[in-house]
Amino acid sequence: MTIEDCYNTLYLSVTIGMLILVGAMVIRSIIGPRITDRILSINMLGTMVICTIAILSQYLGESYLVDVALIYAMISFATVLILAIMFLPVKPKEPKFPGFTLKNGQAAGKEAEK
C-alpha cells in the first residue's frame, strides 16, 4: 500500500464523514422550530460544504475547486445576511437604558434633556 493510496483513503473517509454531518444538518434545518434555527443550520451546512470542497480539491488534484470553495463561502455569507435583514423589523425598537434616551436618532444625556 503506497502513500498515495493512504492519502486517497483518508480524504475519502473524511469526505464521507462530512457527508453524514451535512445530512444531519439538513434534518436539523427541516425540524427547526423557528426561522433563525433554519438560517443557522444553513450557515453550518455551508461551512461543512466548503470544507468538503476543499478536501475534494486535494483528492481529485483539481486546484480550481479551491476557487469554488471561496465563491461558495461568499455566497453562503450573503445568503445568511440577506435572510437576516429580510426578517428584521424595518425600524427596531430603540433600546432604553436608564442613563440616557434616544432623541432624533442621537443619544442625548440627562444634561441635554434639561
Binding site: 423557528r34 426561522i35 433563525t36 438560517i39 443557522l40 450557515n43 445568511v80 445576511l81 437576516a84 435583514i85 426578517f87 428584521l88 423589523p89 427596531p92 425598537k93
Partner: peptide
C-alpha cells in the same frame, strides 16, 4: 450577530 439580532427582535 445578525441572527442574534433577528432572534432578539422577533421572538
Amino acid at each position: 450577530h445578525f441572527l442574534g439580532q433577528v432572534e432578539y427582535y422577533t421572538n
